[in-house]
Simulated assay, not measured.
Amino acid sequence: MTSTDRPSRGELMARLHTAGRELSTAAVMFHTALAQLHGLSATEEKAIDLLQRLGPLTARQLGEQSGLAPASVTGLVDRLQRKGFARRVPNPSDGRSVLIEAAEGPTEALAPHFADWTVALDGLCARYDDTELAAIVDFLGSAAALQREATTRMTAASPGRAAPVAETVLGRGEKLTLQTAAHGVVALMAAADPGAFSSARAGIAGGKALSAATGLVGRVLAEKPKGMKLGGKSTADLADQVFPALAASVALLRDVDPAEAENFRAVMRIAVEAALQTRDGRSPAMAAMAAKIAAALDDGD
């Protein structure tokens, strides 16, 4: 290839930016798919990767490595601990702090998904000599550092807004919990009054309240529930499904964004009130069910 055949610096830079964006998109899609298989968000899965590669970290160190704001790290670790993928342990070098470490069993389940990808990557590396690989390593490491700095700048510039954007990706199982709780509330209110006509009216009124929900809660409830199985032989069977899901939903959303936990509670109260109004509040059975639902919502605290 002659000098006139070589691409210019500008052309190479354009190709590099395009290749970088393609790699970034492919990586996000891969890790999002992997995370969903295990009931995780992409942020949670990457945090596990950091803990596996770097070993136990303090919350501050995890924030530095991920670029997340401190408030986001706290919620992130709470969710990973609740799901069994990480745990807090005493810091042997500083009794005033704790370390976050990956839980071996659950995190090992992620490893097989990387096997084929690792083999293919090793094959790609064989195309380059040691000098070229050293240059690639330097570039990728430096690019990662620059991106962490960019993440930190975003979260620092908008602390009230950036954290929720990073943390509102819920796994399939978490969405199903919210959907089970919300649709279950409507089903319980409809089942509380055995009359066919009143049950239908209560169900329709409650369903309309769910469809009017906004925010993260509204987006989750607008999705078609996949795998949701509500019911049983009795109202008691239904309650055994719904009440734990209500408490779990409040706890989950409080970790993601406290405002969304209150949003969820408000939506549930509106749905209950809408069902009550179909009988003008004159159904003792529905009123008793409404009180039980309110108690279940408070159990998330």
Results as ranks from 00 to 15, higher is better:
residue 101 E to L: 07
residue 108 E to D: 13
residue 123 G to S: 08
residue 106 P to Q: 07
residue 129 D to H: 09
residue 81 Q to A: 15
residue 83 K to L: 13
residue 93 S to L: 14
residue 99 L to M: 15
residue 79 R to G: 01
residue 104 E to I: 10
residue 91 N to E: 12
residue 98 V to S: 14
residue 92 P to Y: 04
residue 111 A to V: 14
residue 96 R to V: 04
residue 101 E to I: 00
residue 129 D to T: 11
residue 93 S to H: 15
residue 108 E to N: 15
residue 82 R to V: 03
residue 96 R to I: 01
residue 71 A to I: 00
residue 81 Q to R: 07
residue 119 V to M: 08
residue 77 V to W: 02
residue 74 T to G: 00
residue 99 L to I: 12
residue 74 T to W: 03
residue 112 P to N: 00
residue 97 S to L: 12
residue 69 A to L: 05
residue 79 R to D: 00
residue 97 S to P: 01
residue 80 L to H: 06
residue 118 T to S: 11
residue 111 A to N: 09
residue 85 F to E: 03
residue 98 V to A: 14
residue 71 A to P: 02
residue 77 V to K: 04
residue 106 P to N: 06
residue 126 A to P: 02
residue 94 D to R: 13
residue 100 I to R: 09
residue 71 A to D: 08
residue 81 Q to L: 04
residue 112 P to E: 03
residue 82 R to E: 11
residue 90 P to S: 10
residue 121 L to K: 02
residue 92 P to I: 09
residue 84 G to F: 04
residue 102 A to C: 02
residue 129 D to G: 10
residue 95 G to K: 10
residue 87 R to L: 05
residue 100 I to P: 06
residue 72 S to M: 04
residue 78 D to H: 15
residue 123 G to E: 09
residue 89 V to N: 11
residue 104 E to N: 11
residue 103 A to I: 03
residue 94 D to P: 07
residue 129 D to I: 07
residue 127 R to C: 09
residue 116 D to E: 10
residue 100 I to F: 01
residue 110 L to M: 10
residue 129 D to Y: 06
residue 96 R to L: 12
residue 122 D to F: 05
residue 126 A to F: 00
residue 94 D to K: 05
residue 129 D to C: 08
residue 72 S to I: 06
residue 99 L to W: 10
residue 94 D to W: 01
residue 122 D to C: 07
residue 107 T to W: 05
residue 101 E to P: 00
residue 128 Y to L: 14
residue 104 E to V: 15
residue 79 R to K: 08
residue 128 Y to N: 04
residue 118 T to G: 00
residue 122 D to G: 01
residue 118 T to Y: 08
residue 68 L to Q: 08
residue 94 D to L: 07
